[in-house]
Design a protein around this nucleic acid. Structure first.
Lengths: 337, 337
DNA sequence: CTCAATGATGAAACCGTTTTCATCGAACGT
DNA sequence: ACGTTCGATGAAAACGGTTTCATCATTGAG
């Protein structure tokens, strides 16, 4: 309209010669109107260039139609495909996606989560395994009344559905793979303490190794970054006994490890085989192309969105999706001597 | 509250023994209240675990406090740092970030943009250079009444402030670099037609080459993907005269090119030098590490957020940030024969 | 001592929807 | 022909805040 404000339902009603309520119905339940009125209303809103005010709708109606996604670092490419899956699922359900980068800080996490309490979002997807607000606090209790699902990383202590792969089994598969190729002495670069991912992958690797008589010479704690992979290489390559294969709990760490190893003149996979985790986009382009465990990130995001969208429908069960070991060049049998 | 609903201002007012309006003021303009009342209200909202309803606030008040970001592909790592910058700037201004993945499709773009018209978001940041709705349409006109800024890619035809680098100058710098190193015959892998980025980088490269007597043997049109970089390699490496250096308009294309070249036994940079664009995270880890033009992506996102946040304050001018050529291993002088 | 200015607070309108509940005419069964 | 049910529509009450305007007790100027 020329006065700078957008048209309201009242104006549309006026122009169409019907009551305000009828216009509302024209959008929410068009079948309940007579074709003639419906047409008049459609014409009127077209004329007036009408758009519903979502704030008013959210205030009066059920929800805001927004899903909040909390993640530790939006700069991390691991999350991008997850987000794409979430975005798709949300869009198809007519929901929008709000993102909150918590940078791993509880204060920021809580700040973002307030969007849910303040009714600006009506569901929450957690990508870092951390539920905002202290356990047992009122803030958390209130938050958990909304649909909440954890993706990729599990939430401790609370009954929050989980969407992801079976990390224990995946890590066990890696151990089996190493054993099958003839490796006997291996090492593990794990994620930070406190991450369920780290724990599960370490556990699965240990179990798989034990089952096949693989000896784990040691485990280094990393932080899922290439830099920590580099550091891990410094450590591992100076151990008195050098492993013939390394399993890193993330591709970034695997790449960091390989880069540092090669810089030291240690060849991968000839002198040391490396297996990563996640199959991020560049694993394939990396030289040597990374052998890794693929997580179906897009499907995971998708499943998470579906879960919160259909929350009322009841199916709040965790979803475990299949992983897959992708064989590429960074892995091979131990070097013959 | 035990009844499942959140407390309202009315309840807080009741408990504190003041009027509803006073509670509202306690949040919006605490200084206008007497310390005693303020304390009582704070206590009461603490007791009741009160949180404002942002929908109600947005309905009556000024805006929703949400910035909508439209991008063509959230799975593309190029955008992640931009998003981080935007998110930071938004957060500091008390705004939230809504993302819309348009997948390059006009329909999805419009769907997302509706969030602005519907008052669910009050500002828009465009990451793909495309303004939703047809030029001249009412939809677009209405959209452009909101704060809108374009990042990285310019918007044609409309007066939308731009945040990014000087792509022409950057590409000219690359040409100069090649000339200085002694290259004489080069090639360019550009982005898709219709992208301002592609046009500007191609133009700058051409200008720089002309200025230094560099001969551009040909230009291949890519799509900013590694795959299109691979295809470009197939083409370029089978030209009758082979260039000694290639300038790709994105790192992904540069990497795709290098991967394909190496697969064909063509060594980089010995036989052919490659320069990319963007300095995405993996350029450094790539083998050979990529020489590229760095865009200050975080700062760009930051600047864009600042621009829409301070929109009313008037400064709606474009922001051009400095670029930087990062020398790494994929570039060198032409091979001696 | 009186009056206007000031500061704190309250009452009520308003934002734009959704959603009862009521109304009214038409179609229906008997 | 008549009471009844049904379908379409209207009137009005929420939803939970913000903001204007009015009120009232103080306080400072003259």
């Amino acid at each position: 309209m020329s006065d700078g404000r957008t048209a309201t339902m009242r104006q549309v009603a006026e122009r169409a010669g019907v009551a305000l309520a009828t216009v509302s119905r024209a959008f929410s339940a068009p079948t309940k109107l007579s074709p003639a009125t419906l047409r008049r209303i459609e014409q009127a809103s077209e004329d007036l260039d009408y758009t519903v005010n979502l704030n008013a709708r959210a205030l009066r109606g059920q929800g805001s139609g927004v899903i909040l996604v909390l993640l530790p670092d939006i700069g991390n490419p691991f999350f991008s495909l997850l987000l794409k899956g979430i975005e798709e699922g949300a869009r198809e359900a007519g929901q929008a996606v709000l993102i909150g980068d918590t940078a791993g800080e509880p204060a920021l996490r809580e700040r973002s989560a307030l969007q849910v309490q303040a009714r600006a979002a009506d569901a929450l997807i957690l990508l870092d395994g951390q539920v905002p607000f202290a356990a047992g606090s009122r803030g958390r209790a209130r938050l958990l009344r909304a649909p909440v699902v954890a993706v990729s990383e599990r939430v401790r202590d609370e009954v929050v559905p989980y969407v992801g792969i079976d990390n224990v089994a995946a890590a066990r598969d890696v151990a089996t793979l190493l054993a099958d190729a003839g490796h006997q002495h291996v090492a593990h670069i794990g994620g930070p303490d406190g991450s369920s991912l780290s724990a599960e992958r370490a556990e699965g690797f240990r179990a798989g190794a034990a089952a096949r008589g693989l000896s784990i010479l040691g485990t280094v704690v990393g932080r899922f970054t290439t830099e920590s992979g580099r550091k891990a290489a410094e450590a591992i390559l100076s151990w008195p006994q050098r492993p013939t294969a390394v399993f890193a709990a993330s591709d970034e760490m695997a790449m960091g490890f390989i880069a540092a190893a090669q810089a030291r003149g240690v060849s991968v996979p000839d002198e040391i085989a490396v297996v990563g985790f996640d199959d991020i986009a560049f694993s394939e382009l990396f030289a040597p192309a990374l052998t890794t465990v693929r997580q179906p990130r897009h499907a995971m995001g998708r499943a998470a969105a579906d879960l919160v969208v259909r929350w009322r429908a009841g199916s709040r069960r965790s979803v475990i999706l299949p992983h897959e070991v992708v064989m590429r060049d960074s892995f091979g049998p131990p070097r013959r001597r």
